Amino acid sequence: MGAVDGEIDYFDQKILDLLVEDGRMSITDISRAVGLSQTPCKLRMNRLIEEGYIEGFRAVLNPRKLGVDHVAYAEVKLSDTKEKALNEFNTAVKKIKEVEECHMIAGRFDYLLKVRTSDIRKYRQVLGEKISSLPHVASTSTSVAMESVKESGRSVSSR
């Protein structure tokens, strides 16, 4: 039933690729597209979930319709990068709903935050009241997205 030792094979990868494109795809449609019958296809999908290749399913929302299509990237430099300080920052940044993504970066700054708000005024408020108040923040620098060309990683193929 698929690859052993936590490795994925062609069929597993095809299932993953299909689900990334449409997480609501039925097992019937998946099995047809992959070229397997429904039972082995369902078993493979369950194994991919159990082994952590699939972490969950969620809705992809339209930010423009929700009024939060302003995207800014905040580079954050910390005053302290000891493990305790990093953990304090990590815990606190997760509580800011406008921060859509947070990545620790190796380079001239420590973190890169993707911040989604309604407009530049709201972003300025979030930056001033929330991001700049996070533990150990020494400085920030902002880049504003003019257009989102590709936002979700559609291809997960490792081949």
Rank of each mutant, 00 (worst) to 15 (best):
R108T: 15
I49P: 12
R44D: 01
D29G: 06
E51F: 01
Q13K: 10
S79Y: 14
N62H: 12
E88A: 14
K77L: 12
E98S: 08
L61E: 10
T81E: 15
I54M: 04
R32W: 10
A92E: 11
I27M: 12
N62T: 09
D69F: 07
Y73A: 09
D29E: 14
E75D: 14
D17K: 07
L78D: 02
S79A: 13
H103S: 13
H70I: 00
E83H: 00
P63Q: 00
V34R: 05
T28G: 03
P40F: 03
K95N: 11
E100G: 05
L61W: 00
C41G: 07
P40A: 10
K14D: 03
L18C: 05
G67S: 06
L61I: 08
L36H: 12
L48Y: 06
E50S: 08
G56A: 04
D12W: 06
K95M: 12
M45Q: 13
G52V: 05
T28S: 04
R64H: 11
K42E: 01
F57N: 02
L48S: 08
E101M: 15
M25D: 03
I49C: 03
F89C: 08
L43W: 00
L78I: 12
E98F: 02
I54T: 06
R44W: 00
Y53D: 03
I27S: 08
A92W: 02
V34D: 03
L86N: 08
S79L: 11
D69A: 06
M104N: 14
E50D: 12
Q38L: 07
D69Y: 09
E55Q: 15
E100D: 12
M104E: 13
E83K: 03
E100I: 05
D80R: 11
R32G: 02
S31T: 06
F57H: 04
I49L: 09
R108C: 13
K84T: 12
R44Y: 00
E50M: 09
S79C: 09
A85H: 05
D12N: 06
S79N: 11
R24H: 08
L61T: 08
I54H: 02
S37L: 09
A59Q: 14
L66G: 10
H103M: 14
N90P: 07
L66A: 11
I105C: 15
R47G: 02
D69P: 05
L43R: 15
A85F: 03
A74K: 05
A85R: 02
A33N: 11
T28W: 01
F89Y: 06
G67V: 02
V68K: 06
C41Q: 05
D29A: 12
L19W: 10
D22S: 09
M45A: 13
L18G: 05
V60M: 07
V20R: 05
E50G: 05
C41S: 13
L86Y: 00
M104S: 15
E83L: 07
E75G: 15
N46L: 10
Y53L: 07
A74I: 14
D29P: 00
L19M: 11
L66S: 08
A33R: 13
L16R: 02
G52S: 04
K65I: 00
A74V: 15
V99N: 04
